[in-house]
Amino acid sequence: MKISKLFATVSIAALSLSMLAGVSANASSKKDMHDMSSMKMDKKSSMSMNHSSMKMNKKSSMMMMDGLEMNMHSKLPKGLKKATNAKFKVGSKVTLKAKHMEGMYNAKATVAGVYKTDLYEIDFMPTNGGKMVKNHKWVVASELKAKGALKAGKSVTVLADHMYNMKGAKGKIVKVHKGPAYVVNFTDTKTHMVMKNHKWLTQSELKAR
């Protein structure tokens, strides 16, 4: 009888230990599953955030005008005669009244250059075979190649590189506007990016501030 009771006691103790081990293993398994789930969520969240950041960075690093990507490395023109009697001098603080592109109207700007030259509104076909760009404002005489005088209706080759796929494009003059022609630095009202040496604006598209 004593041996039988001892055996029963040992069996119960073993069973208890087995149950405790099972509970512990189950808890550990649940914890591991929770940790794995958290890792998956974190990875998914991180991927989503990174993807969103990529979209934002791509958007913020690219400016569009007339459906074409703008050249963000524009420089002041060389060889153009500077306008000495223009209403706004280099360094003048102005507000833009032009709507050539989104984020331009009412933008705060500084005049970076002012030149004695007429401006031309043109239609042109981008060199990448994209859609015809209509009524692009503006280019100046030195940025157009044509036979004879530059006037409305004249066929031209565009030499300007304000935007990619613009240089070398075939087009025609839609309108001629008397100078002076302005180059400005301005802060885009939508993206808050600073646009350096943006070409071109007319005097009537600037307002003193």
Rank of each mutant, 00 (worst) to 15 (best):
S48D: 15
S28V: 06
E205H: 11
K154Q: 14
K199A: 00
A27K: 15
V139S: 09
K55G: 08
A14P: 00
S74Y: 07
N185E: 07
S16H: 04
V111G: 09
K87H: 02
A107M: 12
M104D: 04
L68S: 08
N26L: 13
V140L: 09
K170F: 09
H73S: 13
A141R: 01
P77V: 08
M1F: 04
G79T: 00
S92A: 15
M166E: 10
M70E: 12
N135I: 08
K89Y: 03
M64F: 07
T202A: 10
S61W: 01
K55F: 01
G130H: 11
Y120K: 01
D123Q: 09
L20E: 12
K147I: 02
M63L: 15
K44A: 15
D66G: 02
G113L: 04
V184M: 05
Y105T: 15
V114Q: 07
G130E: 01
V194L: 06
V176D: 01
V139F: 09
A141E: 05
M104E: 15
T9W: 13
K99A: 11
M56W: 10
G91S: 13
A86K: 08
N185S: 04
S48N: 07
K59Y: 03
D123N: 15
K30C: 02
V158C: 04
M65Y: 06
T157E: 14
P180G: 08
M70V: 09
E121V: 14
A152N: 06
K207W: 05
N197I: 02
M62W: 05
H136Q: 08
V90E: 06
V156N: 01
K99Q: 14
E69W: 03
D188Q: 07
M41R: 14
K108C: 01
L17K: 09
H162W: 00
G148R: 12
G130Q: 12
I122N: 09
M70A: 13
K196H: 12
N106R: 14
D42C: 04
V94P: 10
D35I: 09
G179N: 05
H51D: 13
M163V: 01
K134W: 03
M41Y: 13
M47H: 05
A208M: 01
D123R: 05
A83T: 03
G22W: 09
K44W: 07
S18N: 08
L150S: 04
V90T: 10
S11T: 00
H34R: 15
E121I: 12
